[in-house]
Design a protein around this nucleic acid. Structure first.
Lengths: 337, 337
DNA sequence: CTGTTAGCGCTTTCAT
DNA sequence: ATGAAAGCGCTAACAG
């Protein structure tokens, strides 16, 4: 009754190679203080048995798991998916594993998952955490090392994010340089941080528009998804604006769809811009002009910030990436009246 | 020089509660053989210290990690994202964690990741593994318990998948009942398993079409992405078919886009169907008729199959889910000549 | 350079 | 019902 099917342990290798446990351990970890010949013998024995050190046991003794956790508000969100992808690939390249946790937009879950996953990993990356500032501040020390994505920089952990204000600014400039003077801004979740940034950028653009003609921007509260875009189509049309800045690509696409049904020409009669550059933005008819948030890079940067803490120990300064304006077919100069 | 910032261990709790380690362990695990009063005292001490058992240490002694691994060919693929989402949520609901590994369509990586992640988890779920049949068969025993998604059922592990043939059959039936008799099938990756299934289903539909009029299906090799759909637009138009069955939604959307540019009316002049029902299929103009592959359910089913092995030990029989025909605006009866 | 010994933090017999 | 002791599989002092 032997443990036939059980994976071989370090003891088995030691026995087969005729050496002690420590020698096997040293040899397997490339410790240079071991005799080359012996090391070779150990490796051969290990290979023969198909031995690999048990990572769990190593984790216990070494105090590190070679794994990090990523807590995401919603795995269905294309931007978060892209962040996860960039993060996962970067971490894998450095020999780390990634534990994902989907909080499903539940604040309590988010908090609980962050704590729970931290216990089995070397650090946690909070992706656009939804919890209030205070709670986040109180939680972070318990998670250290941690990295936060897309939250204000007033935080006791490295933060990486995109400058939504700058992206919005690029969009407004694009539209005004095209000749548009009457715009509509379709606002999203009105209490989110990213909303604030966009709103301020628009306000700044308006007040900074020191030409003879004026720039007017009407704000209409829409939402964050496709349907909220279709829902405000008539309101947009009634506004008399020549261009609309949607909160994000989804909203822009919803609006675009509703306008197509109403036979409104885009960009002929109305220009539309999105935000994020989700995978489908390039495939609408017409393709969407938008600000590309470098989500994959954001994920990679978050990993870099985590890796720095895990190795060097030197905390990375806050990093802010800039969205890139992607001009496609949904914007053009306003039609001459 | 005490270990101030270090997390409290079971010893600290034992000391504070004035009991032995074993009692703390038993109390924390709800072992009924411990005196209720003492148990309460232990819990109080644990709460005071903010103690939580170290999962890594538990994993080592218990031989289980409460974590499973999911190996995915490409985190960018919407279907795989949906599978991951369904799986992750189901696993979380059962108190398990999920390690994700993106093999990036690299066969060697896929193999290596499966082995490596298995060492730190209780089982691995292979999502649409790309490796050849033989290699997969040889690998599975080392991964056990494992679950395979979307591969033939000739495998020594529970398999969950969608019946692509049936989905394709539904599409053909939909089109023929609409009155279409000349179809084009835009083939995708011609050596994939899912391609085979679709092709056979079409062949079966053709030969089973025992009416007075004939059903003709021309096959054009396209590809699996948006651009391959746009690329074959002219070929499709030249074929004289009244409806086209695209390999998947992406291809259908590419074709749709190219046809819009050419001012071909869909579905007026040509009906188009997709496959998968990715998130954007409902939002094209016109919205896409497609076969909805229940990817989220597939993920949940894969978890169920894994959970069964992890607990009961009874291997689940192979499970095949059926795609649902979703009729939207891209199909209609062919125009009367 | 190599072997012996002591843990990592926890669960679980085995006594009592 | 509780405590003492063994050990999960490995690494890292500590001797030699």
């Amino acid at each position: 009754m032997a443990r036939e099917s059980s994976r071989p342990g370090i003891t088995d290798v030691a026995k087969l190679a005729g050496v002690s446990l420590s020698t096997v351990s040293r040899a397997m970890n490339g410790n240079p203080t071991v005799d080359p010949a012996l090391a070779e013998r150990v490796r051969a024995a290990a290979a023969e048995l198909g031995y690999t050190a048990n990572p769990v046991a190593r984790s216990l003794v070494l105090g590190r798991t070679q794994t990090v956790a990523v807590v995401i508000p919603d795995l269905e969100n294309p931007t978060f998916q892209a962040i996860l992808r960039g993060l996962s690939r970067a971490a894998t390249a450095d020999g780390y594993h990634v534990l994902v946790a989907d909080s499903r937009e539940d604040l309590d879950e988010e908090h609980a998952l962050a704590r729970a996953t931290r216990l089995r990993t070397d650090g946690v990356i909070l992706c656009a955490p939804r919890m209030p500032e205070e709670e986040l501040a109180a939680l972070l020390p318990a998670l250290s090392p941690a990295v936060v994505i897309n939250r204000g920089p007033q935080i006791s952990a490295p933060v990486v994010g995109a400058d939504y204000g700058l992206g919005m600014r690029e969009i407004v400039d694009h539209l005004t340089s095209l000749g548009h003077r009457r715009l509509v801004y379709l606002a999203g979740a009105t209490r989110s941080v990213t909303h604030k940034a966009r709103q301020e950028a628009i306000a700044a653009a308006v007040s900074g528009f020191d030409r003879l003609d004026r720039l007017e921007v009407e704000e209409i509260t829409a939402g964050v998804d496709f349907d909220s875009g279709t829902a405000v189509a008539d309101q947009v049309l009634a506004s008399g604006a020549t261009a609309v800045i949607a909160y994000n690509d989804l909203v822009a696409m919803g609006l675009l769809s509703a306008l197509t049904v109403r036979r409104v020409e885009v960009p002929g009669q109305l220009s539309i811009t999105g935000f994020d550059d989700i995978p489908f933005a390039a495939y609408t008819s017409p393709p969407l002009t938008t600000a590309a948030v470098p989500a994959v890079d954001l994920g990679a940067a978050a990993w870099a910030a985590m890796h720095a803490q895990l190795t060097g120990g030197e905390p990375t300064p806050a990093l802010t990436l800039t969205p890139t304006l992607v001009v496609r077919g949904s914007t053009s100069a306003p039609r001459e009246d």
